[in-house]
């Protein structure tokens, strides 16, 4: 059996904010179909890492390699802005914690889903609409809501719409920043189930940033624990959570799971 190559590789990523260190010497590999959870308290450097991995923030040191569908290695931070942005709206996705940051709130759900397709040259209203309807069904939003603006949606629906908007171009790698943050527990469960199914069916690779260990356990295959800008522990998700070794991970697990 031929081992597939990683879709994402980070080599010694470091980010400084002046004197302060946002993230230090993080390396990782992510394979197709794999969900990598990054956990840690706020300020631990998870968002900095996610921003560097997704090409949205220049690292002070290190590089990020994305391997595209043809197997070509692309240094995300060496690409021109145009190429990077094109990549971000075709083969990559980014799901924001707040759907308002990832959706166009003043245009209809259908147009939100269709935007990436139109950016890629889609110019057929009938086809755009058919695709939008298909995706609404996949994310469990009733078809008649296609013409509503997201402002009329509940928080959970907005988040599902944001996911559909990202996945419509069939990306290979999706970055998620606290995708279930700010949602009710019942709404969260539904979203988690949906994400799990989509990840499995599309063979997506996902970098998931979350401070919620329960979410990390249910969604991710592997976990990285960040503390003060460094990765202090990593491994299989259930192993890290059930048998934590680093003092910080133990603190995290004991305070959150029992709290």
């Amino acid at each position: 059996m031929n081992e597939p190559l990683p879709v994402l590789e980070a080599e010694s990523l470091t980010r400084r904010y002046g004197e302060r260190l946002g993230c230090r010497d993080v390396s990782l590999k992510l394979w197709p179909g794999e969900v990598l959870g990054i956990v840690g308290e706020s300020g631990s450097g998870k968002s900095t890492l996610l921003n560097m991995l997704s090409g949205r923030m220049e690292p002070s040191e290190g590089r990020v390699i994305y391997r595209n569908a043809c197997g070509t290695e692309l240094d995300l931070h060496a690409l021109s802005e145009g190429e990077r942005r094109r990549l971000l709206r075709t083969e990559l996705g980014y799901v924001h914690q707040n759907p308002r940051d990832g959706l166009r709130m003043q245009v209809s759900a259908g147009a939100n889903i269709g935007e990436r397709l139109m950016a890629a040259g889609g110019r057929n209203y009938g086809k755009l609409r058919a695709t939008a309807l298909e995706w609404l069904e996949k994310v469990e939003i009733a078809a008649p809501r296609i013409d509503d603006i997201p402002a009329r949606y509940s928080g959970g629906m907005q988040q599902r719409l944001q996911i559909a908007r990202n996945l419509v171009t069939g990306p290979r790698l999706v970055f998620m920043d606290e995708p279930t943050g700010g949602l009710d527990v019942s709404v969260q469960a539904r979203l988690l189930d949906l994400l799990r199914r989509l990840v499995r069916d599309m063979g997506l690779a996902v970098v998931l940033v979350t401070h919620d260990l329960a979410v990390a356990r249910l969604l991710s295959h592997r976990l990285m624990v960040m503390y003060h800008g460094e990765v202090v522990e990593q491994g299989l998700a259930d192993q890290v959570l059930d048998d934590p070794h680093h003092p910080y991970t133990q603190l995290l697990v004991s305070s959150i799971l029992q709290g």
Binding site: L236, D238, Q239
Partner: peptide
Amino acid sequence: LKALYGNYL
């Protein structure tokens, strides 16, 4: 048993 499953290291 958990070690066999890779759950404990």
